[in-house]
Computed example of a mutant assay.
Amino acid sequence: MSFSMIWPIAIIVLSNVIYNICSKETPSTINPFAALTVTYIVGAISSTVMYYALNRGGSLIQEYHNLNWSSFVLGLAVVGLEAGSIYMYKAGWNVSSGQLVYSIILAICLILVGVFAYHESISSTKIVGILVCLIGLYLINM
């Protein structure tokens, strides 16, 4: 497997570990949406800096002309992801199991989305994988 395939996964894993630690450590005394306003300000500044660092002479305003609906809906989805994570930990989920539970459910949902929305094939190994995930969910929550 080439480095171009590995580095994005490494960033996702590292970022996800940091993400879950930060979600768990968000003070219980703050409204999650108040905390997320700071999160998004930092994210917007970071994204702007990275855009210009990686696109010397680029025009962010010109890039905005290429947007479609997905960036706007993604913004709503990210708010749901982050608020859901903070509330999940406030509800008492452990770092070791909360993320695992929603990741298993997410994986099953994405297999179904792939099949029905994107016409991806579903193999017998994927079906076995779904069954293993469901068994795993049962074992985690015993």
Score class of each variant (00 low, 15 high):
Ser2Met: 04
Ile6Pro: 03
Ile11His: 05
Ile11Tyr: 11
Ile12Gly: 11
Val13Met: 09
Tyr19Arg: 15
Pro27Val: 02
Pro27Lys: 04
Ser28Ala: 12
Ile30Leu: 14
Asn31Glu: 12
Pro32Cys: 05
Val38Pro: 10
Thr39Leu: 14
Tyr40Met: 08
Gly43Arg: 01
Ala44Thr: 06
Ser47Trp: 15
Ser47Leu: 15
Thr48Ser: 04
Met50Arg: 04
Tyr51Ala: 01
Tyr51Gly: 03
Asn55Trp: 10
Gly58Val: 03
Gly58Ala: 03
Gly58Ser: 03
Ile61Thr: 10
Gln62Tyr: 09
Tyr64Ala: 14
Asn66Gly: 07
Leu67Asn: 10
Ser71Trp: 14
Phe72Asp: 00
Val73Trp: 05
Gly75Thr: 00
Val78Asn: 11
Gly80Lys: 07
Leu81Trp: 03
Leu81Gln: 12
Leu81Thr: 13
Glu82Thr: 14
Ile86Lys: 01
Met88Gln: 02
Met88Thr: 00
Met88Asn: 01
Leu100Gln: 02
Ser103His: 14
Ile104Val: 09
Leu106Cys: 15
Cys109Glu: 03
Val113Leu: 03
Phe116Asn: 01
Ala117Pro: 06
Tyr118Ile: 10
His119Val: 06
Thr125Gly: 11
Ile130Leu: 06
Leu131Ile: 14
Cys133Gln: 05
Ile135Ala: 13
Ile135Ser: 14
Leu137Ala: 01
Tyr138Phe: 13
Leu139Trp: 09
Ile140Gln: 00
Asn141Glu: 05
